[in-house]
Each structure stands twice: as structure tokens, then as C-alpha cells.
Amino acid sequence: MKSRPTLRDVGRKAGNLHPSTASRALHNDPAISPETRALVLRAAAEIGYHPDPLLDAFNQHRKEVRPQKLEPVIAFVSDFESREALLHSPHDATTWEAAREAAERLHCKAELFLVGPSQLRSERLSQILHTRGIGIVIVGACHDLQLDLSLQWDLFCCVRIGAQHLSEPRRAVATDLRGAARLATRGLLAAGCRRIGLLAASPRSNHERDFVHAGYLLESASAGMPPSAWFATPESPTIDDASLSRWIASGQLDGVICDDPALIEALRQSRIPCAALDATSLPSDVAGVIHDHRHIGSQAVEQVVSLARANQRGAGNAPVITLIPVSWRDGASLHPLPTAPTAKPRHRKS
């Protein structure tokens, strides 16, 4: 019978340490010095120590039948300036809430840590995580494109939510923006539009913008429709009604995919069929794509807990992204009522 390496073996290999020292080192316990932790991590990697899934299941069962005194903490790192601000951002609040619930299901506890110029700096965050012995990190709800989050990733089991401007951790969970752009294009095509434009005005990282653009280009190409995409950048002037109607006229557009609620309102005022790239928190008469922010939060927690159970730390090698599926919602914004009787009949389909 082949026996699995145990904590006892790890301790012995690391220089006659007690198995509980080995365990505490693997769990980032602050009482263990960095040198000892490094020794233990190396020994564990060398002899291929992994927690036993059967004992894991048994522990899981014990946790279910009696309440835990001390649950492992998952640090949920965000760059909002306050907890209230995060809770007022509908999507991020949903993701955070779902992450908290998923953590509870898995007998962990998610805690919020706010980073940024006026909040915790990276060094201070590292210090806190270290003293509290926290080894699991989710980088979630980070929107500042300038954010510099440099932790010593080798110490952590970590996953990122969205935030594709950050290069680490390399494992990410994100909403499927390419799928969203594809669904929106198809939705407008199904509503009878033949020249569909893409108008993106919300600030996004280049990665995210590219996903949206790629999905739109693919569906446009397969419908044989010349693409017309307008990406507002932070430097470009704000989009006003005049520039909007100039763009629509120049592309002879009869439908627009848009990611900005104010512009969607403007488009509806001018009776242009439109669909929202993210209609999740818009009124139900706006057609568009529904994103599953709950699923994002729970998926991130499941992945990071899975890493923790297998003791797999570090930022990861090849970039990996898990895309959370989106769905389509029909709405009145696809079929604006004709304006006044004097308005031009809608025969611009040719």
C-alpha cells in the first residue's frame, strides 16, 4: 500500500520540526518565522505533500455538525474608498455578498480589506495578512487603473475578479464581455436592425475593451455588416447629442449597443433602437445583457478555496481566465415608438 506523505514527513524533511509546526507554517501562522516557513514550504513541495481529501472530507463533516471556533479567513481586497461606497455600487455589492455567502458555505470567512492611496498600502496589507495568518486572497472590486497592488504572491492562494489591468494574480474570474457583445449584436439583429454601432463610454481597461470589441466584430462579420465602433477614452471630450447624431448619421446606424446609462437614455430620446452591454441594474424596458455578479463572487471563492485545499500558492504561471456566462433580456428599447406623425417613416434598412 502506497502511503501519502503526511505532515509528519514534511516536518522531518524540514529539519525535525513538529508536525504542528509544519501545519502552522503551511497555514501562514504568524508565530512561525519566515525562514522556517520557507523551509517547510520547500520540504512540502519536494516530497509532494498535499492535504488528504478524505481527511478533508471528514473535517468538513465535523465542521458541519458542530460550530467552528476559528474559521480560515479569505481576504477580499478592494480599492473602494469605504465599505459604504462598495455597498452602494450595485454590481460590486452583489459580488461581495455572494463571495461572503460562498465562503460561509465552505466554512471560511470572507473579510473586506480596502487598499489605495488613502487606504492600506500594499506593504501595510502584507503586514496585516501576515500577522493575522491569512493565506487566502481574492483581489475583487478593484477599479482604479493606476492601482499598484504588489503582495508577495508566493505566500498566498489567490484569485482575481475582473480587474484585467492587474497582471497578478494570473488566475482570474470575470464576466464574459465578449459573449455580452455578441449577444447584444445578435439581439439587435433579431430585432431587425441592419447597421449596428458599438458605443462604449464607460472607463474600462484595454483588455476589457478588446473583449467587447472582438465579440462585436465577430458577430458583425458573420452578419456581413460593416463595423462602426466608438470608444470614448478619458482624454476624448464628452459625447453630446450633436456628436452622437453625427456618428449615427455617418454610419447610417439603425441600432446601437451602448454601455452608458445616460447615453442609452439619449438614444431612446432620439428613437434609435438600442441595447445595453450591461442591463443588469437598468429598468426592465431597456433590452440588453444580464451579467451574473453573484456567480462571479461564488466562483472566485470556490476556486481560491480549491487552491487552498491543494496548498497551491503563488500568482500562477500561464494567465487563466474563467468567464462567467451572461444572458440576454428583450426590452422595449429595441422597438422605439415612432415619434410624431411628421417623423420620417423608418425605411432606412436598405
Partner: peptide, 28 residues
């Protein structure tokens, strides 16, 4: 990744075909 996803589904007792499934891509 496929093995990891499968094992976390097994642990969570998630069986069958979900309504909408995730897609995971690994970069080269």
C-alpha cells in the same frame, strides 16, 4: 484546470448540467 474545476464541483456535490456553464481559457 479541468481537473480542479471537476474536483471543486464534486466537493460541492454539484452534479448534472448547469443552466449556463463557465468557460475557462489558458493563455499561451
Amino acid at each position: 484546470q479541468a481537473a480542479s474545476l471537476l474536483v471543486s464541483a464534486l466537493r460541492a456535490e454539484q452534479r448534472g448540467i448547469p443552466e449556463l456553464a463557465t468557460s475557462t481559457y489558458v493563455q499561451g
